[in-house]
Nucleic acid binder design. Structure first.
Lengths: 335, 335
DNA sequence: CTGAAAGCGCTTACAG
DNA sequence: CTGAAAGCGCTTACAG
């Protein structure tokens, strides 16, 4: 843009009067739908900035981040990446928690618009594709980290190589001589959990090992799921020698329950987690786990979002960062 | 104010022309010092809002929150309280991490001013009283949660009854028949850790128990401090029967080290933590701990800050919320 | 549903 | 250093 967009220039571009553009900006009702659309287009094409919202040079870009929780290691580490990267890029973070009585999508979008915020980062949010589309329609850029549901067409998402991670965890256990390996997953609807499970199944099949239905459990990404999972597995006629848990939290529950029941880890039971959060280092024994590059994921998402806010098309709709198996003390050779 | 302040009303109040007021607002040089002062006064007296910064009704107040870390349970739970309460009050949170290469106080204050943000919540920050004063001088309201250093005159702070908490933890151990009780503290400079230690000493003295110098250790609020602390204590000629750790994180390290060394908790060693974060429920055995009302602290701080931003004087410079002893499985009767 | 016109709040080049 | 005046960008009551 050679010159700054004004109501007048936008009006000319849209072929309407200044008044009409003003009405659209102020959300007046008395504008025909088609006209409104043309004006909206002209506004974004010309890069029009609401007067109250032009940033004085010292102010920084604000990015909204919506997380499901702040009290879990997973979110905390992603958040750390987001904060670090945002600072480098001169952006600041407006944090909010989804879930519970979260405000409606419309309300949130309105607040963002009113403050001139134009970027939203969802961390494993349960927002539906329809809701995300609604936000995008208002000119807000959206990037999703580790989506629980596929976020819908045209929405950039950042995640990890869940399938490969699940496969490598299982191969590690196979390599230690275990053949009776169980899987305790997160929510059945969560795509990332499904991917880890598929990786697990793939590794077993490659070795020609039959997949046992009752070795595959699901629940949530929490310790309780791990506790109950181990109970259930130990009650089987032939309990597993090893467990691959779809998150560190689940693995934590498995370890706790094992200790309660006097099952020695790793001597009698090998356990692998997923995530590589700091929690996996605090357990005893320390947890063998598939580390996700959580900080990098946060950082990558921030960069992608800033690019989109800049009007550039995303490089790619889906970015997957590599996971890495960290072998520690919760896994051992089969006896 | 019956009616909204405009340049015209401010000019009338200051007895100058509209042009002059405009110049002052825009930082022009060509205004006499005395005039400038009169105008400034009229501006603040009339509560004039720069056009770019008046919040349209849909936009919410933004509160800056600076935390030392996001990856510890303590901060996460305080944060949860902050977010919840802010949402109720119609405020939103701009999150940033202090520590590392944090931007200078001046830079931060400038950014806040440029975006019209006028409230800052510090969570256990290491900001010096001088730095806090500098921010306040720019018209930004400040509230500190659990200050590491006393935050200086006139700065509201929110904390917990650390002394009483330390005392009750120690009394619990005394009540179980232990007399050889050690204390593993956080940073020696941290006031909250000192207070907990003083509560511990007070409980011992009340029972006429001599305080042993080598039973009192310090370090940081982290597991490593707990690990090393237990090592050190077990190396003593008469090791303690019980340990009061100044945080759950420290206690976690004690538990881990005890397991490594084959010391049974609580049979051979009782352990009490401090904080009551979710981590204290995930250990095995579950941790007896002094719970701080972390969510409430966050919430109280938000309310106090919003009051100050509203121009009301704070109710009190220091708010202390009650701690509560949670007896779980890491403590047992002396044998 | 649309836009011409009046008007508000602010900025600025310029005369004094 | 000050302010009258021109002018810009926006909003809005109202005529069509």
């Amino acid at each position: 843009m050679s010159t700054k967009a004004t109501l007048a220039s936008v009006a000319a571009l849209a072929g309407v009067s200044i008044s009409t553009v003003s009405k659209v900006l102020n959300g007046r009702e008395d504008v025909a739908e088609g006209t409104r659309r043309r004006v909206r287009e002209a506004l974004s094409q010309s890069g029009y900035q609401q007067p109250g919202q032009r940033h004085s040079s010292a102010a920084s870009v604000l990015i909204d981040v919506a997380v499901d929780s702040v009290t879990t290691a997973y979110y905390a580490e992603v958040m750390e990446g987001i904060l670090e990267c945002a600072q480098t890029q001169g952006a600041e973070i407006v944090l909010s928690k989804t879930g519970g009585t979260r405000p409606s999508v419309a309300e949130r979008a309105e607040k963002m618009q009113a403050s001139g915020r134009r970027g939203l980062l969802l961390v494993t949010s349960r927002w539906s594709p329809a809701e995300i589309r609604e936000v995008k329609r208002r000119g807000i850029a959206v990037v999703v980290i580790d989506p629980i549901n596929p976020p819908g067409r045209g929405v950039t998402s950042v995640g990890a190589t869940n399938w490969a991670g699940g496969k490598s965890a299982t191969e590690h256990l196979l390599g230690l001589g275990h053949s009776r390996i169980a899987f305790i997953g997160g929510p059945q609807s969560a795509e990332c959990s499904q991917d880890r499970e598929h990786g697990y199944v793939a590794a077993l099949l490659e070795r020609g090992i039959q997949v046992a239905e009752d070795y595959i459990l699901a629940g949530g990404f929490d310790p309780e799921t791990g506790r109950r999972g181990l109970d259930q597995l130990l009650a089987l006629q032939t309990p597993p020698q090893a467990i691959f848990a779809a998150s560190d939290s689940i693995a934590l529950g498995v370890l706790a329950e094992a200790q309660t029941r006097g099952v020695a880890v790793p001597e009698e039971l090998s356990v692998v987690g997923f995530d590589g959060t700091y929690i996996s280092e605090l357990t005893s024994p320390q947890l063998t786990t598939v580390a996700q590059p959580l900080r990098d994921m946060g950082c990558t998402a921030v960069r992608a979002l800033l690019r989109e806010m800049d009007g550039q098309r995303a490089d790619s709709a889906r970015v997957e960062l590599a996971t890495q198996l960290l072998v520690r003390s919760s896994t051992a050779r089969a006896r």
